[in-house]
């Protein structure tokens, strides 16, 4: 099935993503949600700023989801990433994977988020109380 991929400046809608993957043949849904936390490497974070190369990011997410669908019995996937300014506690990324059985839902979800973090051109700037920097991992 064609995955749902969203790159948006608007707050992410978890329920809409879950609804998009829900289907009678689905037996398990795994959800990973990345949220903005208030500290990083000893710094007090005020907010995060995400920048994206949107056309390529969407293409790379599609490649990752295709690979996940080859490796596991994945029926439906929704991936949403937000960019722009995000406050503490807000969701920056949500991955929803629906499969017939639970094991592959966890594995595919883990694979998608781990790969996304290293190959999809979306960057994060930490704006802390003592300065700001682009995070390079």
């Amino acid at each position: 099935m064609e995955p749902l991929i969203q790159l948006t400046r608007e707050p992410l809608d978890r329920n809409a993503l879950i609804a998009a993957v829900s289907h009678a043949s689905v037996g398990g849904i795994a959800i990973f949600e990345g949220v903005v936390r208030d500290h990083a490497r000893g710094k007090q974070i005020r907010y995060l700023e995400y920048d994206a190369y949107p056309e390529m990011a969407e293409q790379q997410i599609r490649v990752i989801v295709d690979e996940a669908q080859k490796r596991w019995d994945v029926e439906h996937v929704a991936v949403a990433h937000r960019f722009g300014r995000l406050e503490i506690g807000e969701a920056s990324v949500i991955i929803v994977v629906a499969t017939p059985h639970r094991a592959e839902a966890f594995e595919a979800c883990r694979y998608i988020i781990d790969t996304l973090k290293t190959t999809v051109p979306i960057w994060k700037k930490e704006v802390a109380t003592n300065g700001e920097e682009w995070v390079e991992g």
């Binding site: 690979e67 790969t115 290293t118 999809v120 994060k124 390079e136 991992g137």
Partner: peptide
């Protein structure tokens, strides 16, 4: 053309980006 600095999730060296 775009020069892509490392993303937060790790380094390019850990991953074969060319195959993706």
């Amino acid at each position: 053309l775009v020069f892509i600095p490392p993303m937060g999730g790790g380094s390019f060296q850990e991953l074969d980006v060319w195959s993706l």
